[in-house]
Design a protein around this nucleic acid. Structure first.
Length: 424
DNA sequence: TCTGGGGTCCTAGGACCC
DNA sequence: TCTGGGGTCCTAGGACCC
């Protein structure tokens, strides 16, 4: 049977989210900033036309913002996550065969739809999502995921398609592939893009016509996979969504540099607590913990970055134990007198909670007690908001390290803005 | 002055063994 | 002590994704 994939891709997702509850922003340039209002992570079409780049630091566009030429929003991931769920729920109205690929993208398996109806079906999906959620989307349809992705790129750029491009058996496909820049292909990033352009391979069409042996040699296995997919061979299947993560991390850049070990310890403890919470949410245990710290990476001369990995004596998801080891790791790499700009915690060697080999040295009673304690903590933090209960080692200044000057209200989860319940 | 966060996979090369 | 080849395992780093 023939595969039919559709990629649903929300247009400029974060910027579109900001618009939904602030209609004055319609047709105006909008950008969304990263944590600490550091740099641009989303732009509306109008903002792109102003020449604002992805990843551009805020200070470079500050003048424009202050002159009212562009609306600036701090990131509000609570809002975006909630609107994402609404989009995904809407998709379920059309099919159960959904793979949520990222916060703003989903692959649908439409092999059950009659080939001649695909484009109309796509239009119906697009219209419904806009009506029900307010989010504009582009839809690409094709016999492989890579082609569906490419089709959605065309849909974003060429307005005559009204947001839905169908590569399935389309006679125009090759011509449209020639309109896609080579580094806009899914699987071809900056490095390979530069390399390919150096060889005169400028568009997706050029790439598709390369010799596979050459692609394999220059771009190894992954590059060849992309080439085969672009040539119509479906190799990347729908994923079930039941896969467990292989690693979990938490990190932050600081607006103000951090010098003291005490402060770093507190920050590392809170990142560790966050990773541990995610870990328990996935019903997993960690076998290794890595802590890393770094100074300002744009100051090349004085740049210091280091990390320390510790193999845990036995796999665990117990926050206090993980925090204990995180502090040990930090003490191995901390250097006095430096101004740190970023720190993070990385859990790896993950295993399923229920299929861990029992270890004769583990006291089972004590372990059950730890598990109950963590369940209780997770429950309270879920019920009353994050950080209601936390380890004394964690950063008790809370979010004071975060600067967000332009944050929109949590329109859809307003209760998360209510005052927190005081606990002792 | 001010530059995001969270992931996956692949490969080259070193360590070690026979 | 030196020489040589082949195999496996591990890890750091680099590519990619959103």
């Amino acid at each position: 049977m023939n595969n039919v994939f559709a990629l649903i891709d929300c247009n400029n997702f974060y910027a579109s989210c900001e618009r939904i509850f602030n209609p004055k922003l319609e047709n105006k340039p909008v950008v969304v900033l990263s944590n600490n209002d550091g740099c641009v992570i989303a732009r509306s079409e109008e903002a792109k036309k102003l020449g604002i780049k992805m990843g551009q630091p805020y200070f470079e566009i500050k003048k424009m913002a202050q002159a009212g030429l562009v609306h600036v929003a701090s990131s509000n991931f609570g809002l975006y996550g909630d609107l994402s769920q609404r989009v995904m729920t809407t998709l379920q109205y059309f099919t159960d065969e959904i793979e949520v690929y990222s916060i703003d993208e989903a692959f649908l398996d439409l092999s059950q739809i009659k080939k001649s109806d695909l484009t109309a079906y796509g239009q119906e999906i697009r219209k419904t999502i806009k009506q029900w959620t307010g989010i504009p989307v582009s839809i690409g349809i094709g016999p492989t995921k890579t082609l569906a992705k490419a089709a959605s790129k065309v849909g974003k750029k060429q307005k005559q398609f009204n947001g839905v491009v169908n590569f399935y058996n389309s006679s125009e496909t090759d011509q449209l592939l020639n309109s896609i820049e080579v580094d806009d292909i899914w699987g071809v990033g900056r490095q390979y893009g530069r390399m390919l352009k150096g060889f005169g391979v400028k568009t997706a069409g050029d790439f598709k016509n390369l010799k596979p042996a050459w692609v394999q040699k220059k771009m190894t296995k992954a590059g060849l996979l992309t080439w085969r997919e672009l040539n119509g061979e479906s190799l990347i299947e729908q994923s079930s969504g039941l896969e467990k993560p292989k690693s979990i991390s938490s990190s932050r850049s600081f607006r103000q540099p951090v010098k003291s070990q005490k402060e770093l310890e507190a920050l590392i403890a809170s990142y560790t607590a966050r990773t541990a919470e995610k870990l328990r949410g996935d019903e997993m245990l960690a076998g290794e913990i890595t802590v890393y710290i770094m100074t300002n990476r744009f100051d090349r001369e004085n740049f210091y970055a280091n990390s320390a990995k510790i193999k845990l004596p036995s796999p665990t998801s117990y926050s206090p134990d993980l925090i204990f080891w995180s502090q040990k790791a930090l003490s191995k790499i901390y250097l006095e007198g430096l101004s740190y700009k970023k720190a993070g915690v990385y859990l790896s060697g993950l295993s399923n909670k229920n299929c861990i080999q029992s270890n004769i040295f583990i006291d089972e009673k004590r372990d059950n007690k730890k598990e109950r304690l963590m369940r209780c903590l997770d429950h309270l933090n879920c019920r009353f908001g994050n950080n209601t209960i936390r380890s004394a080692a964690e950063n008790f200044w809370g979010v004071s390290f975060l600067e967000q000057h332009f944050k929109s209200p949590n329109y859809t989860t307003w209760w998360s803005d209510l005052p927190k319940v005081k606990t002792g």
